[in-house]
Nucleic acid binder design. Structure first.
Lengths: 238, 238
DNA sequence: TACAGAAACTTCACGGCGTATAGTTTCTGC
DNA sequence: GCAGAAACTATACGCCGTGAAGTTTCTGTA
C-alpha cells in the first residue's frame, strides 16, 4: 500500500460511482415517480451499460431498498430537526412543528413519500431486517416523544387502557422504553394512533384523493392539529 | 334483425368476454398485486392473444381504470351495507360498524385496497372524470353520514370552525348538502378528517408498516374507534 | 342462399425492462 | 513488468405494452 493509498483511490471511485447511481436514481424518481427508477435509465444517464450497475448493487430491488433507507432517513432528519428546533416548554407548538414538518416534507417530496409508504415499485418486496426499519423506528420514536410530551395532560383520558407491553414490537420498545422510562403502553398506542391520523391525511393528499373532495387540505390539516392538541388536553398557546 | 336478435348474440358474447377479462384480471391482482395485471398474463389465462384484449379495452390503463371503478364500488357497497345494517338509534354502533367494515374489507382485499389507494400500477395516471370518483364520493358521503350522526353530540366542539362551503369540492357538496341539509361546513371537514384517521391506520396496516411496531393492530383500531366516539361526545353504549 | 363487410382474433414486429453469462479493458500491488 | 482483480461491455433470454397487417368467423342483406 502506498503512502497516499492507491488502493484508496479505487475505493473512492467506487464510493463516488455508488453515490452517483443513487443521485441519478433519486432524480429519476423525483421526476417520474418510483417506477422511473430503472437500471437502464440510470445507466443511460451516466453513460454506462445497465449491467455495470450490477457491480454496485446486486439487483434493482437492492438499489431501491438503499434508496428507501436514504429517503426515509431524510424524512426522519426533517421531523427530528423540526422537533429539536422548538422548546420543550410548549408541547402544542412542538407537536405542531413535528406534524407540519412531516406534511411539508411529504408535499415537497411526494415521490419520496410514495417510495417509502406506497407500493415502492412494481414487484418490490421489503426485506425483513435492514436499515429502512431503523428510519421507521426513528419516526416512531419521534412520535412517542410527541405522545410523551402530551402525556402529562392526556394521561387521564386513558385510565382504562387495554394495552400492555406485549402488544408492541420488541424492537420498537427497545428504542422507546429507555428513552421514556415512565411512559405506559397506552402512550405508545396513542403515538401509533397519531401516526395513523397524520399518515392518513397526508397520504390522501399526496396521492391526490383529497383533491376531489376539498380545495384546502392545508386548512384541514391545521384543523387536525388544533383538534389534536385540544384532544390531548394541552392548553392552547398564546 | 331476427326475432331473437342475432345481433344480440354478438353483444352477449362481447359482454361475457369483457366480464371474463375483468374476472381474470382481478384474480391476478388478488394473487400477485396490482402489478400482476398484465395483458399477456390475462390472455394466457384465457387462451387468447394479448392483442385480442385490445378489442375490449383500448389500453391497459383503461382496463385498470375499469377495475378501480369496480373494486372501489365493491368497497362502497361493503361500508354502505354495514351502515344500513345498523340502527340509526345508536350512532356509536353505527360508526363502529362502518369503520370496521372499511378495515375488514381492506384486510380481506389488500390488493384491492392498494389498487384503489396506492400507486395503482407502474405508470398509471388517473383520468379526470369517470366513475371511480363516483365511488369515492359514495364513501365520502357515507363518512358525512357518519359525521351527521355524531353532529348533535359533537357540534359544540366546533363552534369556532374555520371552514366554509368554498373549501370543498362542488361535486362533493352536490351529493352531500341535499342529503344532509342542516349540516354545516365544519361537519364535512370532520368527515374528511375521520376519513384520514381511518385511512391512515388501515393503510399502514395493509402496507405492512404497522407490523414492525405493534403485534395487535386490531386492538389499536378498536382503541381508535372507542376514542373516536368518545371524542365526538357520543355516550358509550351499554 | 350467396356475399360484402364488420367484428374477433392471430401473427409479426418494435422498443423497453431486469438480469444471467461470457468476454474485454483497465487498474493495482508485488 | 506482470498476474490477477476489478470495472465494464456485449450478447442473449424472457418478460412487458402496443402498433400494423393479415386471417378467420360471424351477420345482415340482396
Amino acid at each position: 500500500m502506498t503512502v497516499t493509498g492507491s488502493r484508496g483511490r479505487r475505493e473512492r471511485l467506487r464510493v463516488e460511482t455508488t453515490a452517483e447511481i443513487k443521485k441519478v436514481a433519486l432524480a429519476l424518481m423525483a421526476s417520474g415517480g418510483p417506477d422511473a427508477i430503472t437500471l437502464r435509465a440510470i445507466a443511460r444517464e451516466m453513460g454506462m451499460t445497465a449491467n455495470a450497475i450490477y457491480g454496485y448493487f446486486p439487483t434493482r430491488d437492492d438499489l431501491v431498498t438503499t434508496l428507501i433507507n436514504d429517503v426515509y432517513t431524510a424524512l426522519a432528519d426533517a421531523v427530528d430537526a423540526a422537533w429539536e428546533a422548538t422548546s420543550a416548554a410548549d408541547p402544542a407548538v412542538r407537536i405542531e412543528a413535528w406534524a407540519n414538518a412531516f406534511r411539508t416534507w411529504a408535499l415537497v417530496n411526494p415521490q419520496g413519500f410514495r417510495l417509502i409508504y406506497g407500493d415502492p415499485v412494481p414487484g418490490y418486496q421489503a426485506p425483513e431486517g435492514g436499515p429502512a426499519p431503523d428510519a421507521a423506528r426513528r419516526v416512531c420514536t419521534g412520535l412517542t416523544a410527541l405522545a410523551a410530551a402530551a402525556w402529562p395532560h392526556a394521561r387521564n383520558l386513558y385510565h382504562d387502557s387495554i394495552f400492555d407491553w406485549s402488544d408492541f414490537d420488541p424492537g420498537l420498545l427497545e428504542k422507546v422504553r429507555p428513552a421514556f422510562p415512565d411512559l405506559p403502553p397506552a402512550a405508545v398506542a396513542l403515538a401509533l394512533r397519531i401516526w395513523g391520523h397524520l399518515h392518513g391525511l397526508v397520504s390522501l393528499e399526496v396521492y391526490g384523493h383529497m383533491r376531489t373532495q376539498t380545495t384546502s387540505p392545508e386548512k384541514l390539516f391545521q384543523e387536525e392539529l388544533a383538534q389534536l392538541t385540544q384532544t390531548l388536553g394541552i392548553p392552547r398557546r398564546r
